[in-house]
Amino acid sequence: MTELVAKKIAVRARDTSLLEDVSLSLRPGELVAVLGPNGAGKTTMLRVLLGQQKVVAGSATIAGTPVADLSPAERARNLAYLPQRRPLAWPNTVRDIVALGRFAHGATLGRLGPVDRAAVRAAIEACDLVHLVDRHIDNLSGGELSRVHFARVIAAQTPLLIADEPVAELDPRHQLGIAQLIRNYVNDGGGALVVLHEIGLAARIADRLIWMKNGRIVADGSPRETMTEVRLEEIYGIRSRVGPDANGIDVRIDGVI
C-alpha cells in the first residue's frame, strides 16, 4: 500500500522556524483536511511532502522511500499535486490540459497511447467536462476551470493526491462540486490531503482533520473528536458554535474574539 509518511519534520528559513516537529500520515482511502490560519505552515508542509522543500530535520517517505530520493516522475506517479496558484500560460484545449496529467507516464500531447487516452477520458467524464473537451481554456468560467485542473490531477491515476486550497475563489455550488469530486476519488480508493479554509466543508467531507498553528500540528483526529469551539478559538481566534447535525457536524461562526 502506498502510504505517505512524514516524521518529525523541521524547516527553517534563516533563523525563523517554519515547521517544527511535524509528523503525519496519509493512506489510500482517506480524506484528510489540513486546517489552520494563514502563515501556519500548511503550504510549506505540502512542499516538504512533495520533495520541493529542504528540511533541517525529519523525513518524508512514500511507500518507505524518502521523497527526496525519488525522481520527479516517480514521485508524480505516486502523488498528484494541485497547487493553490494555477496560472495557465497558453489557451490550450481542455483535452490537452487534462492530458498533461499523464506527463509522468510519458504521454506526449497530441499523440496519446491507448492507456493514457483512456485515463484522460475517464477523468474528463468524472469531472463532467465531456461537452467542453475541445474548448480553449480562456473561454471557461472559474468553476469549469477548477474542474479542468482537478481532471488533470486525477488523470494521473495516482494512489495519493495533495490539493492546496482547491475550492478557494469558487461559489458555494462549485465548492461542493469539487468537494464531491475529491470525495469520489477517495471512495475509489485514493488518499487525499487537502488544505481548506472552509471549516464547515472540511467538517462535512473529511475523515480526519489536521490542525496547524505556528508551524506545528496541534491536533490530528476525526472531525467529531477535534472540531470544537475551544479549538476554533485557539486556532483562528474566532467565536463559534459547533454541534452535531444530520450530515455530521454543523459549524456556525459568530465573530472574532
Binding site: P72, A73, Y81, P83, L88, R152
Partner: peptide
C-alpha cells in the same frame, strides 16, 4: 519539448506532474 508542454501549467504544477 515535452517539458515545454508541462510548463503550460506553471512551474509549480509542472514540477508536480513530474518535470525536472
Amino acid at each position: 519539448r515535452r517539458g515545454l508542454s508541462a510548463l503550460t501549467l506553471g512551474e509549480e504544477a509542472a514540477s508536480g506532474i513530474g518535470l525536472d
